[in-house]
Design a protein around this nucleic acid. Sequence first.
RNA 1: GGGCCUGUAGCUCAGUUGGCUAGAGCGCACCGCUGAUAACGGUGAGGUCGACAGUUCGAGUCUGUCCAGGCCCA
Length: 981
Amino acid sequence: MTNATDQQANTPNYKKTLNLPKTSFPMKANLVQNEPASLKRWDALKTDGSDNKGLYHAMQATAEGRKKFIFHDGPPYANGSIHLGHLMNKTLKDLVVRSKFMAGYHCPYIPGWDCHGLPIEHKVMTNLVESGKAAKLETLTDDQRRTAVRRECKTYADKQIKLQAGQMKRLMTLADYEDPYLTFLPKFEAGVLEVLAGLCEQGLVYKALKPVHWSVANETALADAELEYQDREDLSVYVDFEATDAAAVFNAFGIQEADHPGATPSFMIWTTTPWTLPANLAIAVHEKFNYALVRVDGNLTVMACDAVERVTTLAKSEEVETLATTTGDKLVGLSYTHPLIANAPTPINDPDADTSNCYSIVHADYVTLEDGSGLVHTAPGHGSDDYITGLRVGLPVYCPVLGDGTYDTTAPDWLIGMSIWDANQLVADRLTESGHMFHAYKFNHSYPHDWRSKTPVIFRCTEQWFVAVDQPTKRDGNSLRDMAMKSTGDDRSVHYVPAWGRNRMRGMLESRPDWCISRQRSWGLPIPAFTLPTGDAFMTAASVTAVNIIIREKGSDAWFADEPSSLLEHYNPATDPDAPAELKDGSVTFDQLTKGQDILDVWFESGSSWNAVMRQRSSGENFPIDLYLEGSDQHRGWFQLSLLPSLGVMGRPPFRTLLTHGFMVDKDGKKLSKSAGAALKDLFDRYGVDVLRWWVSSLAYENDVKVDEEFFKLAGDSYRKIRNTLKFMLSNLNDYEAPANPDFSKFHVHSIDAWVLGEYNTLIEKVTNAYETYAFHEAQKLIYKFCNTTLSSEYLSAVKDRLYCDAPDSERRRATQQTLHTLTDGLCKLIAPVMCHTADEAYRALHKVEPKEPTTCVHLTGFPSKVNLETATAWPLLWESIEKIMKAAEDTRAKSDIDNPLDLGVKLPDPDDTFKWFNAEDLADICGVSRFELTKDDKIEITDLREQPRCDRSWKRDTTVKPRSDGGTLSARDAQALGLD
RNA sequence: GGGCCUGUAGCUCAGUUGGCUAGAGCGCACCGCUGAUAACGGUGAGGUCGACAGUUCGAGUCUGUCCAGGCCCA
């Protein structure tokens, strides 16, 4: 039973004579209610001399004059509530902002939002249609309609930004939320156009007809980043294209035409897009591959040797006979007849195109033997590879498909005006009827889809603006790719965390095509290009710069509202070396120009933020930027698309360090479904933000991160451990007044206080290092282990006796309190970047701050500095022995009826006097036993002290315990504490 | 199909240039304390290191193939 009932009736109750822990710091955190109170208190923080209020500005004011750390926020898209992905991304960023401040840097942080673009425009258009307002728009002029849509989009974006900013603030992220960067603000737009002008100046911007991914649903070109791959069932066809000259084919195979009188060999192609067949202009083979002339059920056809069995089996052909084989190079130059079209068509926008090279066999490297027949249908207007081949062999860029996905008037009559999706079957039927279809079947494959409308995307030739990747810059002749390869290669100008980011970037840069920067939408930054009466485009560095003066002043709406002559008010062709001749000589005036209709790819905007935000707001000072931190998808996205413009304009990467984190996956490691995962707000309300942040800080974020309800619960458990350790320390400092400058010079090197302060010094060093290298989980682990093991299980359990039982003012107790105070203060500072609320709550409790007192805040301090004192070097050895002692003691208790460790004594062999200078009472307290002796024996001995008297107050058994004048049985220390003899 | 990455106890992670019986925390089981108490302390049980093959005296670590998963691309 309890020790209290053990006592004799006349023994005093000593409990009330102890210095028991006491604090107002509650065990229960109640984060959901208390965090908003902290936020409110921080919001009210005001530092002298500034109009700005709030913790962020107070920190900036505090850090004024320090070494700067420039960190740049990648803009999330302004749509919808923030989700689990934002939780990790924004928290990690905040850990950087806060830890850099605590480490002594000045780290300003401007949050941003990506506001333009299709998702918002699509949403707004949907709303307009549903509300019936869209019909009204139809009555307006183009410019008016677009201006109206843009107004709606801006209102929508503003609302989303407010929503997200509120949630980010609740996440306790620190940033300049009063002055964020928004991509639709005139000053941002102007910063983007500066970059465009810079690229024009380097000769990297051009307009060209090129096949691009085209969304039929939205009638716009799409960026790579706007594609999603989904499985789709398509009609897959093997089609025979008859050779024009049968003799030439037989000749290529080295056999006589006479042996096959009247036979017309065909070339067999394979495609999953029959609708592109009308645009076929060539068939590609690989020069090195072997091709066979095969008789299949009576017909002669050419296909790759490796494809014969596969293809004929697929088509269930009955008689298959290979007549001869040859290599691809022998086939190059042969011609064929298009099965659907008599004469090669001329493109609608290029009536003078040379069609003389059409309908022949050409070579291409990308021909493979895995799929199809080894002969590749080539339509330069509908494929990237095809386009390049077409350029090489002199084919026109023919694309008979309009923006809405229907055929134009150059297509065969029976296709004109028809949707390409409907044409698939019709083309197949025609080919079957005419006997050209060898085999048709349904085929499931991964196919690119428009990320927004989820509809399949096609390749279509359109006039688009491009940034050239391989064009030499005028500055030094290095192309963007040259520079990009260098920055991801050996020059180490960019530091990658984790290191494999370098290879990943490099791989993507090696193969990336020219960047299509134009879109055919309204909600975006217009490309300030004009069309001359000749139909040629006009956009030069000087013209962009001139228009930009207007945009900076009025915003990009001016492009739609103003006439070319006023937009070009500040432009002088005479001083522009790149100006078109007709403008220079005055034969064409500004009034005769028409404004371009394209807007910029949103990635070009966010990819220019290094200029539009960082350089612009610091007069160029904050460049290059120390750190970009985003998910690993941004290697292709924002990182790469920031790198390229910066290389073009500035000649160097915009960032020094690129840090990437992985993606959230479910508890089985599978991709998180869009609907999965609780709303973040729900998590705020159930666990509290400190717990969520504590969880984020524990993540090995460079890999995929599993997320599950259970993990938040576990994080809550470990949060409580930290909280309880803080509470216990605070509760033992209730009667302690900390000196302004604690003096540790009198601490004995062998004392337990010196030991724990040594551990604390190590902790400071390791944790600040971990923060420095963004190894937050390392910091988190160290802090957790320190609280749990070093403090709770080792130090605090050892010093409990002296804290409780020593006279309140005793030197030993005060020394321990001084230690505790230092540890608590430092711990609050070390956890401050993570548990923002709890750290400040504990810090204010430690410093006994009145609840209403607004200015004391752990977040305005810094990481603790090390305590200046020595620690005995034998401690590690001693701890090894202590571990053995604990096991031995546990053994003894298990084998006997001794339950209480205080009924035990310990004898530790110390033949070499290694531990001679340690204090026996300290060691007994560490082991949780009553007595500790060093011996010259060779074995640890655990002794039973139950025969000896026990102190009624401290429950220890030591040699000084005896009856005292108050009727109790006490040790000398306890008697002295009570002022007894 | 290609590029980059991941796969170590039930869970989350450490494991340096290949080198003793593979570590930690959580969780779990058992014990103690009841003067940190919706706390605290102690002890313990858990792993053929995704699979297979290879290099080596020796492989969680290096190589290859395969399987599973993620991001990006085709």
